[in-house]
C-alpha cells in the first residue's frame, strides 16, 4: 500500500457518494434525451434516439 505517500486520499464512502451522484445525473440526462414522452422533447431528440436505438414511437 502506498497510502503513506499521498497527501489526500479518498475513502470508499466518498467514491460511492461521487459515483451515486454521477449515476443519478447521468440517468436524468438519458431519461430526458432518450425516454421522456413529451412531444417537443421527442421531436428534438428524434434522430438521436434512433441512432442510439432507444425505443422510439
Amino acid at each position: 500500500m502506498t497510502t503513506a505517500t499521498k497527501t489526500v486520499s479518498l475513502g470508499i464512502s466518498q467514491r460511492i457518494a461521487a459515483a451515486a451522484v454521477a449515476m443519478v445525473l447521468g440517468g436524468v440526462l438519458l431519461y430526458g434525451a432518450g425516454f421522456a414522452s413529451a412531444n417537443t422533447l421527442h421531436n428534438a431528440a428524434h434522430d438521436g434516439r434512433h441512432a442510439f436505438a432507444f425505443p422510439c414511437h
Partner: peptide, 17 residues
C-alpha cells in the same frame, strides 16, 4: 444536441462505474 446530452449521460455512468 441530443447526442451530446446522451453522450454526457453515458459518460457519467461509465465514470461512475
Amino acid at each position: 444536441l441530443a447526442n451530446i446530452v446522451i453522450g454526457v449521460g453515458y459518460a457519467l455512468l461509465l465514470c461512475a462505474g
